[in-house]
Amino acid sequence: MTLTVLFDASCAFCVRTAQWLSAQRAHVTLELLPAQDEQAVARFGMLPWLGQQLVVVADDGRVWAGSAAFVMCLWALVDTRELAMQMASPGLAPLAERFFRFVSARRHRLAALVSHAPCAEAACARPLSSAYR
């Protein structure tokens, strides 16, 4: 199974998180694509969430957006799969959703915490334009 993770390349926090994601041990193949990337727009431009929210697309065509996509990213990793299963449980799902919305809404402000320089497009997008395992 391959999951394509479409993240917001205009936010340094998202780019850093995507880089972190690509460095983790995963149960599935992860392809990280900036949502603004030409290839991403060509393949997934019909998805209304593209660029607005985190989007995850499986190779069989299933699409997750927002907090569900966030849970899918955790599910993909060896170290966080159990956490993802718990986050999707009825008790924790509303909390996980609120957490994701909180972070997502402030992603550009969070960028200031992880990056010293403003996210120049070339510097951010370049290392993630290809597929990562």
Partner: peptide, 16 residues
Amino acid sequence: AADLPPPVLPHAQLEP
């Protein structure tokens, strides 16, 4: 855990 299916339902289905 390696065999567990995705815990969340997809929002959409793209035609293959």
